[in-house]
Amino acid sequence: MRSLVISIIALSLILGSWGLFMGYANKSLRNMIQTVKNEVMVEVVQDNWDNSEKALEQVSSSWYRGRKGYSIFLNARSIDDIESSISKALAYVRMKEKANALGELAYLHHQLIFLLENEMILLENIL
């Protein structure tokens, strides 16, 4: 009985902290996805480079605020992919390279969606 209680408490702690993190990550990642799609990409298409840079920096700072949590709970490779994509997109936007910036932003958008969906309790993720 003692073993049962200890193992339930241990797993509850793990799942509880994961649940709290996912609550935060869900909100934060959705905001980032929206910003990349509706603000940064739109501004780049319209050649508003200053606005797109500001919006992308917002995404970047939002990402790095939650970085510790992401690195504890998520796969390190996905985190690396997103960080290198943010850096590349920022560089393309600063250099005003439209095609490259849009390509990299599309990749970043896809990676953020992938990260969010990868942690959801879905049959395709379980199997």
Binding site: L4, I8, A10, L11, I14, A76
Partner: peptide, 25 residues
């Protein structure tokens, strides 16, 4: 595999522990 977080391993290990204890009980 450094790509896999310790937390992921921990979750799997503790789930196995709980299953083992439940099935034993």
């Amino acid at each position: 595999t450094p790509d896999i977080s310790v937390f992921t391993g921990l979750t799997a290990l503790l789930t196995l522990l709980l299953l083992d204890v439940v099935i034993s009980s």
